[in-house]
Measured scan of single mutants.
Amino acid sequence: MLDDRARMEAAKKEKVEQILAEFQLQEEDLKKVMRRMQKEMDRGLRLETHEEASVKMLPTYVRSTPEGSEVGDFLSLDLGGTNFRVMLVKVGEGEEGQWSVKTKHQMYSIPEDAMTGTAEMLFDYISECISDFLDKHQMKHKKLPLGFTFSFPVRHEDIDKGILLNWTKGFKASGAEGNNVVGLLRDAIKRRGDFEMDVVAMVNDTVATMISCYYEDHQCEVGMIVGTGCNACYMEEMQNVELVEGDEGRMCVNTEWGAFGDSGELDEFLLEYDRLVDESSANPGQQLYEKLIGGKYMGELVRLVLLRLVDENLLFHGEASEQLRTRGAFETRFVSQVESDTGDRKQIYNILSTLGLRPSTTDCDIVRRACESVSTRAAHMCSAGLAGVINRMRESRSEDVMRITVGVDGSVYKLHPSFKERFHASVRRLTPSCEITFIESEEGSGRGAALVSAVACKKACMLGQ
């Protein structure tokens, strides 16, 4: 009897593995994704193909990295998701002549009506938060230079001027797309009239992360975010950046690689679950690469896999709870928690219980395998993109072996128990001629924006502006 049951459990697990095998990517698959990513990057950089390229390769006008001589107080704003952060950054000489960066910050959550109302409502709310922060720190009387981390696709015309191309991540505030974001912020500050600010720089969160990590390690020339969304930036040779005049030196390019796949480059790798996630998203047909990796989508992918296993009578005796059938019910943090389970399955059992399920031991094991399959594919897909960037940098610099540091931020990278190990191992397999160091950014977005502002202020002083 026991043997029969054991055989049935083994057969069930084997069927589960057959279904989950769809998520496995072979090294040849990853090399294919990497080569296609490089081709799209090239198209994004070139003037004649930029418009139709899915990977936009947006110039950021960040050319210099901090040298350690900029000092002063800077205000930093960070808008990239449902939370908005205001930070005071003091850049100065530390002990023994070292450079020191001290920060104080406060988080504000953005109400739904500000995210989806008008641009005026959104930026009025942001300036209200700045006003509140300055009151708390008794700094209303000071006109501070301000660095703005704005983590949406922007076409820069200068370091302090950028046109919002399109909202992502659930934002829909009308009247912002096609307009200068810094102008919208300046107008809102003017409307309030109770404080003055000098907006000197606007950067993407990947750029802010790279600059913040450069402060720790001067070989950091790539910034990457794996959180709600997924994106990367890197220092490109100016001669390859056709959208900006000049051939000397390097400029940081914001790849906006989340949109890779929007022209069909990933079609052969998309599964039924991916198509369902895409169809029910706020932007169907867009940001397809990001939807395979980002935390906004990972939990939902797992939920759809679990429903398939229920329908195949391989999980929960073929019956799903009402909660499990509800879109968004299986949160991405559950994926991390399930994979963090120590082996007694308590954590998995508790999560499934909150979803109205009474799982068996085998159910718990199957749910864990589903989570591992989805998150491992995410790590491997992400590795193909980064390997594409790094191999490109090595080739354009004609280096036999390139040493490089990548600064990384984002909740999936930082909080998932195995993502970074799987990701690092896969990147290294795909970049055999590179020695890569990964560092995690601390308060990256805010500190990085302030350091970019410090560079901009120093330049302005040198130019006598």
Rank of each mutant, 00 (worst) to 15 (best):
A176C: 11
S433R: 12
D78E: 15
K56R: 10
L146D: 02
D4M: 03
D409K: 09
G343R: 04
I159Q: 06
M238F: 07
V310T: 08
E399T: 13
E40P: 00
Q106S: 11
G264H: 13
A21V: 15
G295W: 14
D78Y: 06
G170V: 15
P359H: 00
T209W: 07
T431K: 00
E399M: 10
E40R: 00
G81C: 14
L271M: 06
I390S: 02
R429Q: 11
H424M: 09
A449R: 06
A176G: 09
V199T: 15
L88H: 06
V305A: 07
E322F: 05
K32N: 10
F260N: 01
L271E: 03
T82L: 10
D3A: 06
C364V: 14
V62I: 07
K39D: 14
G356Q: 06
L386T: 14
M87E: 06
T332G: 15
M57G: 00
S396W: 10
F123N: 04
I390M: 10
Y61I: 13
V406K: 01
H141R: 10
G299Y: 00
N166V: 05
F423W: 01
I390V: 10
S54P: 08
G183N: 14
G328F: 07
G328Q: 09
G94R: 11
Q287K: 11
N240S: 07
Y289S: 02
M107A: 14
A384C: 14
E95M: 13
I211P: 01
I130H: 00
S398T: 04
E331L: 14
Y297C: 09
M107W: 09
T209R: 03
A329C: 12
S433G: 15
T103G: 06
L144Q: 02
V226Y: 10
G68F: 13
L306R: 00
G249E: 01
F423A: 06
E177Y: 03
V389K: 00
S426T: 04
G72N: 00
R447N: 10
S383R: 01
V181D: 12
R85W: 07
Y108A: 02
G328I: 01
G295E: 10
S340A: 07
E51P: 10
A460Q: 12
L270T: 15
E322I: 07
L352H: 00
H105E: 12
E443C: 02
L77G: 11
V154L: 10
L77N: 04
T60K: 00
A114H: 15
Q286H: 14
T118M: 14
L357C: 13
F150M: 13
A114C: 13
L304R: 08
M121W: 08
C213Y: 08
L77F: 07
E339I: 05
Q219I: 08
V408E: 08
R377A: 00
N180K: 10
Q106P: 01
I211R: 01
V203K: 12
V455N: 07
L304W: 08
F330E: 01
F23P: 00
S100P: 06
E443F: 03
M139E: 07
G388E: 03
P111K: 15
S426V: 08
D262Y: 11
D198E: 14
E372K: 10
L288I: 15
E52D: 03
A460W: 09
V55F: 03
E112M: 07
G72R: 01
Q38C: 10
T228D: 09
C213K: 01
E312M: 05
L271G: 04
G444M: 05
K190V: 13
L30S: 09
F316C: 14
R36S: 05
K459G: 10
Q24I: 12
V241A: 08
L122C: 05
V310M: 09
L304C: 11
E216V: 10
D42S: 09
K13N: 05
L58D: 13
G407L: 01
C461F: 12
A379G: 10
S453T: 12
E300I: 00
S69F: 08
R46K: 08
M34C: 05
T49Q: 05
G285C: 03
I110W: 06
E272I: 04
V408M: 09
N204F: 06
Y349A: 09
S353M: 02
T354D: 08
A282Q: 00
V241Q: 06
L47P: 03
D4Y: 01
D400A: 07
D187E: 10
I366M: 08
C434T: 07
V338T: 03
K31E: 15
P66M: 06
K420E: 02
A188F: 01
Y214E: 04
S151T: 07
K12L: 12
K13L: 09
L270M: 12
G407P: 02
M235Y: 02
Q18R: 05
V277H: 05
S100V: 14
R325Y: 11
A460M: 12
L463F: 08
I439S: 08
A425H: 05
S131I: 05
M402R: 07
M115E: 04
D113C: 13
K143H: 09
K142A: 08
I439W: 07
K136H: 04
L58S: 06
E67K: 13
D409Y: 05
K102W: 10
G80Q: 04
C434Y: 02
A456D: 01
E51M: 10
D267L: 02
G223F: 04
A53G: 04
I159M: 08
M462K: 15
T82N: 10
F123W: 09
E9M: 10
L77A: 15
A282T: 15
T118C: 11
H156Y: 14
N231P: 03
K458C: 04
L30P: 00
S54M: 11
D78Q: 12
N313C: 12
S445W: 14
H380Q: 13
T206M: 01
T361Y: 04
D124P: 02
L307K: 08
E242K: 01
E128R: 07
E96R: 12
V452E: 03
E237N: 11
M37N: 00
V71N: 15
D160A: 12
N254Q: 10
K56P: 07
D247S: 07
M34Y: 10
M238Q: 06
C213T: 05
F330N: 00
R85E: 12
M37C: 03
V367M: 03
R250M: 15
M462C: 12
G407Y: 00
N179S: 12
K143D: 03
Y214K: 08
G261T: 00
R192L: 08
F171H: 10
T361V: 05
N313R: 09
G193K: 08
R368D: 02
A11H: 08
D217V: 04
A282W: 07
R358A: 11
Q98E: 11
T332I: 11
G388A: 12
G294Y: 05
